[in-house]
């Protein structure tokens, strides 16, 4: 448990530094869903920057966790349904965990406070219901 918390704190510092660098140098809010939408190309955006960001993201994860790290996923059907919901939800909410729960809260934005409260509460409720069913 203690090691879990220390890892979470250290990871959180790196995530905060990433958001800070992206704001201080690029003048942009680090929101993964917005960056992904920009990269996929139906929104005008800085394609090169977004592409390089995701290249770094993959490299960083591989560097620390190492490919082949055993990660248990839910069933394929559930992955697809969850993916569709996450995709629709983050575009309607104009942000996800990074844009709202880290950057938005750091800026004290009212929209981000509301969004974070709602998606955390709903996700916790889904897990609680799944436990009963």
């Amino acid at each position: 448990m203690l090691s879990g918390i220390l890892h979470a704190l250290a990871g959180g510092v790196l995530i905060g530094l990433a958001a800070g660098v992206f704001f201080l140098i690029n003048g942009r809010i680090l929101g993964i869903s917005g960056l992904a939408a920009g990269l996929l190309g139906w929104r005008s955006g800085q394609r090169l920057e977004n592409g390089l960001f995701f290249l770094g993201l993959l490299a960083g994860a591989a560097l620390v966790a190492g490919p082949g790290m055993p990660l248990a996923l839910v069933s394929s059907g559930r992955l697809v349904v969850a993916g569709l919901l996450v995709g629709v939800g983050v575009r309607l909410a104009n942000g996800c965990t990074s844009g709202h729960a880290v950057c938005g809260l750091a800026r004290g934005g009212r929209r981000s406070i509301a969004a974070t409260a709602v998606f955390m509460a709903v996700a916790m409720a889904v897990v609680a219901v799944g436990r009963v069913l």
Binding site: L17, L30, G56, L57, A61, A62, V64
Partner: peptide, 9 residues
């Protein structure tokens, strides 16, 4: 930023 974010995650 991507590298830091990926390492952090």
């Amino acid at each position: 930023a991507g590298l830091l974010f990926g390492c952090g995650l």
